[in-house]
Design a protein around this nucleic acid. Structure first.
Lengths: 127, 127
DNA sequence: TCTTGACCTGGAGTGCGCTCCAGGTTGTTC
DNA sequence: GAACAACCTGGAGCGCACTCCAGGTCAAGA
């Protein structure tokens, strides 16, 4: 993750992968799928990711990690490209996902209860 | 989910699916994969699920819903079949998964923060 | 000049967890 | 006794999100 002088105009794919935790292949895949705007290139055609790209990929990762699908993310990106008129739809999309994430937390809290119940059983057996 | 008199000796696959939220196909799949002990059969060869089966499938569902893989669940089941001597390993497996679930909750809490941040932005724009 | 390494492209392959299908049996209903 | 519904089996197929691959370009170092 050492930033070389080559990277004054953006991060190399390898550095980007290191910074975001998203593999080079996956970064290219996201770009193909329209989840990342076409990345600027160095003179040799290699990608150079901007700091905005870093922030955006971190958002993507956050949303993916919480179960938003590629399809939904693509929709969200499309709306972003279509300008301000789509803001209310984007907001709705996020609000829907927010409820989804809260539901996921509830499921997991319930799971913890069940696991703890089982664990007290195992611990009793072993005492 | 109406319990017919036919089902005094156990639930039909359809009722089981209704009760657990796990499809008939998936129930068979779990049985094939060793996640459910071979289910008792009616005289015509049809499965009859016991109330213990119901409880167990609910546990399976809970663990699956929180990301435990089929492979891990199979391991857990194998240990269960091998008797008391495996209890400490089962406990470890659950404790590991417990930590996993807590990490999932943390990821989701972070996601909520990010989503809320974005939402305040959209709401400000719209005000 | 040759090699090496990081990257490029389009497209094929992979792993997981189901989900569906064809062809068959059984039991009930008209 | 014909039709229908619910189930059975082994095995094929599917959708998703990557992940890998072959074959190529380019720039820097020995």
């Amino acid at each position: 993750m050492t930033t070389t002088t080559d990277e004054v105009n953006g991060l190399s794919p390898a550095s980007m992968a290191a910074q975001t935790g998203v593999s080079i292949d996956t970064l290219r895949y996201y770009e193909r799928e329209g989840l990342i705007d076409p990345v600027t290139r160095a003179s040799n055609g290699h990608r150079r990711y901007s700091s905005d790209d870093v922030l955006w990929v971190q958002v993507l990762r956050c949303l993916r990690d919480t179960g938003m699908t590629i399809e939904q993310l693509r929709r969200y990106c499309e709306l972003g490209q279509q300008g301000e008129s789509t803001e209310s739809e984007r907001r709705e999309l996020l609000e829907t996902h927010r409820r989804e994430v809260e539901a996921q937390i509830d499921v997991r809290r319930e799971a913890l209860r069940l696991i703890d119940h089982k664990l007290t059983f195992y611990r009793r057996e072993q005492a």
